[in-house]
Design a protein around this nucleic acid. Structure first.
Length: 863
DNA sequence: GAGCACTGC
């Protein structure tokens, strides 16, 4: 049974200290300890108290989230009876509560990575503790990799301890080798797990119905404690709440939603304790790691989550519903055992469970790596492909990141090394796109608005989800009409929030997140501060008599030129983007009428019926003339000649392009003559536009020519091959642009002109169309058929047996060189025999057939 | 039912 006084981690204290103190040791340690072991608060103190930090060294405890960083620091300070910020402190973005005397500091992941950029040998840091490493955040991965490098080069004394709750440690051990692994127990209560007996028919019964039904069943069997239901998103949560609230057997339950978009007051309401009532919280992934809810003893898990991914092939973010991993399901189940033994129902079968992935894909394998790649390049890692990744990202992800950084000018085009611009960009702690925008703003003296714009995109969505027409209208009334950029609407909303001193009530009426606006204000201040420190003057708004809106929008274009889009048609939201992508402009976008826009967000989401839709949001209207001025090298024109199947004519499509995106398109029917002839010839050859006069006789003539060129090479005849045929037809089509114009054109003159009159005469002589034969009824001209394509196969003569009685020798063409193949036909024109040697036929074959033929056709003459 | 999980510098 877990006890309050003695944390399980103490059992490891001696081993831990011994391992780190070992002079022959590697100073690398993996600490596998589940939630509640006390590792986050106790291990740093063990290091300090055992003297492992030296005289004045610090231990940095890396945290994935800000709130726990602060809370843990406060708790440890309390345990050690000191003021926060003295011996124990924390550093998170915009909040540094440490001092020169600080020995234990809780730091969020991004902060340490930034620190490594400025001070690569990490002076003063004796040890780094990577807490919650199993969550595998991007910055955690990179920070560990860099820390290993630092330890191997300038800081062999640096101690690295990787702490992880559920991680399968095999790959990590290999990665850190040589290292030691210590394992500790947790301090949670047992949780029993139950699966569905058979797969849930989610196509017929939605997950929310099933969850409510199962809650009613389990509520009776487990009479104590609160419940937690995991759903993938806000929509599913609201449906589940609806089911629960209307369920006849769940009337006494208090049901509360919990997800990140919720205002803080409602989040508090979900976490709060309601004495005397049973509570069910329906939550997204927030409750899996970020928030803990005390008193939960029952978990119902739909097993789904919306997972963000970046598709490096298309350069599109996706946010699709996926099945969670086994590790994630265990983490969710554990939420039932924090205060007492609990129970977890998984809405899938045990067999299905075995098929799920063991772990979630780490962020490094699914997110946009542009920012991380730039950071690595700044640290001297020129070849990011061969960086010491714990798990290397896909090649395409790195390609895509480098491509974007090159487009932004952050990397040298030729060498791929970081450029001066790239280094300047890194002074701003934002995605490279926004950093680049801020640099562009410096040149245009509009840093202030662009800094605000950048700040507004970093915090959670400033606008709450629309809650009906009324709020939309109020918002429109107050914020005014906007046609140039969605960013401008955000900025106005921010100004409103600021003027109302971030009052949650006033903001909420307009659907504005007061908290989000407050965070944006802090970021805004940070960006302006950085600008000032680097010699800029954010208030240098010299008035050049220019349109401020235009300056700002041009900056947006600099950061997102690869997400330029053109409206496909007026009145539609469908857009064509650079990079051969398509998307739909968000319906609430203010720039609904602009023809050219840049979208700061391109995201693929699931629509009703699981259909996928690429959604363009945070859009800004841009002008084509800007492209000309700002990206002259990326503009071009194309001219495409094509055959219009319905009009049956050759047309020209002339486009002006920005990279591969057509800016406009003009169709005309004045194609260049060569191009038109070639396309018409193509249609003729494919049989879609037959030439009336290119008949069987023409084909036979070509076959004769080709055959004769084989049989009698001394004549010097040039055969008509497939290419020549194409050239001939092209020549026939020359000057025309429509099928109508070529359909009736004369063919013979052009084909015949292939040969000189002398050569034409040879064809008639040596490969004649008809040949004279002495039949029983006298001489007769019989037609020869030359097999196509005329590669030397002999011509065929078909004749009824009675016509052949007097023909004994073989019939020959090509000056007697090529015996004609004779098809001997019965009176019904069915072939009896095919032969080049008629004499042999009369002698060997004919006698065998004669009797039967005579019986069948008694009226014919049979010799 | 319109179309959105969670963090972090």
């Amino acid at each position: 049974m877990p006890s309050e006084d003695r944390l399980p981690i103490y059992e490891l204290a001696d081993d831990l200290v011994a391992a780190l103190r070992d002079p022959a040791g590697s100073r690398r340690l993996i600490l596998q300890a589940p939630t509640g072991s006390g590792k986050s608060t106790q291990v740093p103190q063990m290091l300090l108290d055992a003297g492992l930090l030296g005289e004045r060294g610090r231990v940095v405890v890396l945290q994935p989230r800000r709130l726990p960083a602060r809370m843990l620091a406060a708790r440890v300070a309390r345990e050690r009876d000191t003021t926060l910020g003295q011996e124990v402190g924390y550093r998170i973005r915009l909040d540094n509560v440490t001092s020169a005397r600080t020995r234990i500091e809780y730091v969020t992941e991004g902060i340490l990575l930034r620190q490594m950029l400025g001070a690569p040998s990490l002076g003063g840091v004796a040890a780094i503790l990577f807490d919650e490493f199993h969550e595998r955040h991007l910055y955690g991965d990179i920070t560990l990799a860099r820390a290993l490098g630092i330890q191997e080069t300038t800081r062999p004394d640096l101690q690295l301890i990787v702490m992880s709750a559920t991680l399968e440690t095999g790959t990590l051990e290999k990665y850190l080798a040589p290292c030691r692994t210590l394992v500790s127990r947790g301090r949670t209560f047992p949780v029993t797990t139950e699966y569905l007996p058979r797969p849930a028919p989610f196509d017929r019964i939605p997950a929310w119905e099933l969850a409510a039904e199962e809650l009613a069943r389990l509520a009776a069997a487990h009479p104590a404690g609160d419940a937690l239901v995991f759903m993938p998103g806000a929509y599913e949560i609201s449906r589940t709440l609806n089911e629960i609230r209307h369920h006849p057997r769940l009337g006494q339950w208090l049901a509360r939603p919990l997800h990140g978009e919720l205002p803080p007051a409602e989040q508090d309401a979900a976490v709060a304790v309601y004495p005397g009532r049973r509570k069910v919280v329906v939550s997204t992934n927030v409750a899996e790691t970020s928030l803990t809810i005390d008193g939960v003893r029952l978990v119902i898990d739909a097993g789904l989550a919306r997972v963000a991914r970046f598709d490096p092939y298309r350069g599109i973010n996706t946010l699709l519903i996926e099945k969670i991993s086994r590790a994630s399901a265990d983490q969710r189940a554990g939420r039932a055992g924090r205060t007492a033994p609990g129970h977890c129902l998984r809405l899938w079968t045990e067999a299905e469970h075995a098929d799920r992935p063991a772990q979630e894909t780490p962020e490094v394998g699914r997110l946009d790596l542009a920012e991380v790649v730039l950071t690595l390049k700044a640290s001297g890692v020129d070849d990011v492909y061969n960086f010491r990744w714990l798990e290397p990202p896909g090649r395409r992800s790195l390609d895509r990141a480098e491509l974007l950084l090159r487009d932004l000018g952050a990397l040298d085009r030729a060498t791929g090394r970081i450029s001066a611009v790239g280094r300047q960009m890194l002074t701003f702690p934002v995605h490279p796109r926004y950093a680049r925008m801020l640099l562009a703003a410096r040149e245009r003296d509009c840093v202030r608005p662009v800094a605000l714009l950048a700040a507004l995109t970093q915090s959670r969505n400033l606008f709450t989800r629309s809650e009906g027409r009324k709020m939309d209208e109020d918002r429109d009334d107050l914020l005014g009409a906007e046609h140039e950029s969605d960013f401008f609407l955000l900025m106005r909303a921010f100004r409103f929030a600021e003027n109302s001193r971030f009052d949650p009530g006033r903001c909420r009426r307009l659907g504005i997140h007061a908290q989000g606006a407050r965070q944006a204000a802090e970021l805004f201040a940070q960006f302006l501060d950085i600008e000032q420190k680097h010699g800029g003057n954010p208030d240098a708004q010299k008035d050049h008599g220019r349109d401020r809106s235009e300056d700002i929008r041009r900056c947006v274009l600099v950061g997102f030129s690869d997400q330029l889009a053109r409206r496909l048609d007026e009145g539609t939201l469908r857009c064509q983007l650079v990079g051969n992508r398509r998307g739909t402009l968000a319906r609430e976008s203010a720039v609904g009428k602009a023809r050219l826009i840049v979208a700061a967000e391109v995201r693929e989401v699931q629509q009703r019926g699981d259909e996928l839709n690429t959604l363009l949001s945070l859009a800004t209207a841009v002008e084509e003339t800007w492209l000309q001025e700002m990206f002259p090298d990326d503009l071009g024109a194309t001219e495409e000649v094509f055959f219009d199947d319905t009009a049956r004519r050759v047309m020209v499509r002339r486009q002006r392009r920005f990279r591969d995106l057509a800016l406009d398109e003009k169709l005309s029917d004045d194609p260049p003559k060569e191009g038109a002839a070639a396309l018409l010839a193509e249609e003729v050859l494919a049989g879609r536009c037959p030439l009336k006069n290119w008949d069987a006789a023409v084909e036979q003539w070509i076959a004769r020519l080709n055959a004769l060129s084989h049989w009698m090479p001394e004549l010097g005849l040039v055969p008509i091959g497939p290419d020549d045929r194409r050239a001939l037809i092209e020549q026939l089509c020359y000057g025309a642009t429509t099928y109508k114009a070529i359909k009736e054109r004369a063919v013979w003159p052009a084909v015949r002109a292939w040969l000189s009159p002398q050569q034409q005469a040879w064809i008639d002589e040596y490969a004649p169309e008809r040949i004279e034969m002495h039949t029983a009824r006298g001489p007769r001209k019989v037609k020869l058929t030359y097999p196509e394509p005329g590669d030397g196969a002999p011509p065929v003569l078909a004749a009824r047996i009675q016509e052949l009685y007097d023909v004994t020798g073989s019939v020959k063409v090509a000056a007697g060189r090529v015996p004609v193949v004779i098809q001997v036909l019965a009176p019904n024109h069915r072939p009896i025999q095919v032969t080049q040697d008629l004499a042999n036929f009369w002698r060997e074959s004919y006698p065998k057939h004669k009797a039967e033929l005579q019986r069948k056709y008694p009226k014919h003459e049979w010799r």
